[in-house]
Design a protein around this nucleic acid. Structure first.
Lengths: 232, 232
DNA sequence: TCTGTTGGATTGTTCAACAATCCAGCGATC
DNA sequence: GATCGCTGGATTGTTGAACAATCCAACAGA
């Protein structure tokens, strides 16, 4: 059945990789990484916490070596920090990290929106805006947060670049880890809800320069706010 | 002796991580990754080549598990491609990859140069230009290539962002892998040697917008050239 | 020519072991 | 009383061996 599916889905024989990805069973190491990513995003694992290999291995019912592979992956994503011979720790916000993260965001988000995008991609941005409005109407703080992430992810997706998309995904994962629910109060959201609306409108109207300026201004302000809350 | 060094180098007690990095002995897995990175950059391992775990392990005199860790690291850097149950292969240039890479470069390089940088960072850009001239005078093709990489690395370094720097380093490693010596003929270099000079001059003069425009134009042209040589 | 099967090779994963390293606690010394 | 050095336990780094799962090429048969 697997092979039949494969033949049906790839008559051209070109995109075999894509077809295989769809039906592929994630390896154990990947599932461990996924589980840890989830726990990090959800706030189960707080910054600075130590992750002991043996403990994680036992908890998840896998071997230590497999846990190690997952650690290597997450360390590459800056979610975990490996300190040789001491252990791996949940990444913590060091001095300058906030500025650093926003520097990356300014580079790739502004560049993406200034180049515009296909109608479908623009529609995705609009969808994220609507998602935010809906969450706001339902006072769903959780939903508001992810809507905002979808919005900014959709902006980067305008560029249709796999590499930019994965970079942005990592940055967003970092932000979920650092700026967790506790720091995200309603006061925060009300600001950018209308802001996103404006940015999206400018994008739809083809006023790319203005959209870029608005986005840049938002990012600068957001950085200031976050810096004010957390340390420098 | 080690502890003495440590105390001398960190009177503030703040940057303990940095000090430790300097004296740290790389783990075996890291050295394996480093060796593979070298062989990739040097063209020993060509795109598409299969890397068998057992073979590499025996060649380097390490265990299979250690090789696996190194593979995970390099796969995260897009230098190797892991195909489950089939093996790891040296990354190959897929359709759209060239455009993808240049999209990232446009985003982070142009953004970095438009924001300017400290005099020291600007001096580093100038140094890379001079390095290129020197290599050109000595008809050192090898040196020309790395001088160009240093130039673009120095531009990104203007932003003083660790994250942008590592992103750029990965992109440059990819380019070394894909666009290897064979494709880099002298005709290529003569173009951007004067180009870099102009960009650097504009940067030094504080004409950031112009510097950004020049850099952008260069990147666009470079993408066209590379696309013409390799497939789409 | 196509289809199934089979066997070898390679990967994915586990387990157990040991060396290297770190760390906290505890005396010994001044 | 503070500092120094030591020691023991815990954790990481790395290895080697083992086995199941998967893939692939070659082969046999319809």
């Amino acid at each position: 059945m697997a092979s039949a599916d494969q033949e049906i889905n790839e008559p051209a024989g070109l995109n075999s990789a894509r077809a295989r990805v769809r039906m592929r069973v994630p390896s154990v190491a990947e599932r461990v990484a996924e589980e840890l990513r989830y726990q990090l995003a959800e706030g189960f694992l707080v910054p600075g916490a130590k992750l002991t290999e043996a403990t994680i291995a036992e908890d998840l019912g896998v071997s230590r070596n497999t846990v190690r592979e997952a650690f290597a992956e997450l360390a590459g994503e800056r979610l975990l920090l490996r300190q040789p011979n001491k252990g791996v720790f949940v990444a913590t916000l060091e001095a300058g990290d906030i500025h650093d993260v926003y520097t990356v965001r300014r580079a790739i988000e502004v560049s993406s929106i200034r180049a515009g995008g296909s109608p479908e991609r623009i529609a995705a941005v609009r969808a994220a805006v609507d998602e935010g409005k809906l969450a706001a109407a339902g006072k769903d703080n959780e939903g508001l947060g992810s809507a905002n992430q979808h919005f900014h992810g959709a902006i980067v997706a305008l560029a249709e670049s796999n590499r930019l998309n994965t970079i942005m995904a990592q940055i967003l994962a970092e932000m979920r880890l650092y700026f967790h629910k506790a720091t995200l109060n309603a006061h925060f959201y009300s600001d950018w809800l209308t802001e996103n609306e404006h940015i999206c409108s400018a994008l739809e109207a083809g006023e790319l320069e203005r959209a870029g300026d608005l986005l840049l201004a938002y990012l600068n302000r957001s950085e200031q706010q976050q810096t004010a809350i957390h340390g420098a």
